[in-house]
Amino acid sequence: MTKDSDALVDVDVTASAAEVHVLKSYVATFYSQFGALSTQKELQKRGVSAELQPVPRALSSSCGLCLSFQHDSPLCLEDATDIEDVYQVTADGYEGLVIF
């Protein structure tokens, strides 16, 4: 297991070139505002631009804020705090990926 901060780099280095460049849009919801804030910081530290926004009504949630980001996989959320759900943004709406 690599150190936390190296995990993202691992994916970039080892995945094939085609996969690395396919950025997908994700939305992550949280049980707490702190979860959203700290995860945003963590993602930004890893070079992933993540934006806080009000949770889309279609998803609803407890804390009111969600994190919208683009990446080639939701794996960058591995150490997120208080995470509730992760959705991939598709043309049809939101597809749930991880439901706890």
Partner: peptide
Amino acid sequence: VIAKEEVAAVGEKKGLCAQDD
């Protein structure tokens, strides 16, 4: 509460990410 293995498992199942480790 999120474990790396859980995300990886779901991600693989959905064919969303290349997983190496």
